[in-house]
């Protein structure tokens, strides 16, 4: 598993991986587990995935990003298993020569991940109850 990790995401390491003397702009999107105003007593999320397809689809998404922004370098990690509120569940980090490419490529990869990568989440409540949660695709509703 290249992209799925079962321990805390090391964002500093990802930034280091996309850095080079030629890349002056780095953009990072960090998605964290949250408790929204209507979510109830959520203490964490349990992530599951179709692991082989996650790898296949993220390979393709990053390859397409490389076609559009050839000088950018992209790293993606997504948590699997239980993640507590405030912990990072996903990180997309892009290094590019300038900020415009870095922001654009980062946004592209995040949106494609949301739409194409088979990952599911089940909220864990204070009571121990679990409930499946459907992701929304609206970027405005995400942090």
């Amino acid at each position: 598993m290249q992209y799925l990790v079962d321990a805390a995401i090391d964002v500093a390491q990802l930034i280091d991986m996309v850095s080079s003397d030629e890349r002056g702009g780095t953009a990072a999107f960090i998605g964290s587990v949250r408790r929204g105003p209507d979510d109830g007593p959520v203490v964490g999320i349990e992530y599951s995935a179709y692991e082989a397809m996650v790898e296949t689809q993220l390979d393709k998404i990053i390859a397409r990003a490389a076609e559009r922004w050839p000088q950018a370098r992209v790293e993606v990690r997504h948590r699997i298993g239980r993640v507590a509120t405030r912990e990072a569940s996903v990180a997309v980090v892009v290094g590019a020569p300038h900020r415009a490419e870095a922001f654009a490529a980062c946004r592209y990869v995040v949106e494609q991940l949301k739409q194409r990568v088979p990952i599911w989440k089940r909220e864990i409540l204070e009571t121990g109850e679990r409930r499946w949660r459907t992701g929304d695709l609206s970027p405005e509703e995400h942090p």
């Binding site: 998605g31 992530y47 179709y50 995040v110 088979p118 990952i119 599911w120 989440k121 459907t134 992701g135």
Partner: peptide, 10 residues
């Protein structure tokens, strides 16, 4: 073939 519930990554 895989049946995929609505995706919810992130």
């Amino acid at each position: 073939i895989a049946l995929l519930p609505p995706l919810a990554g992130g």
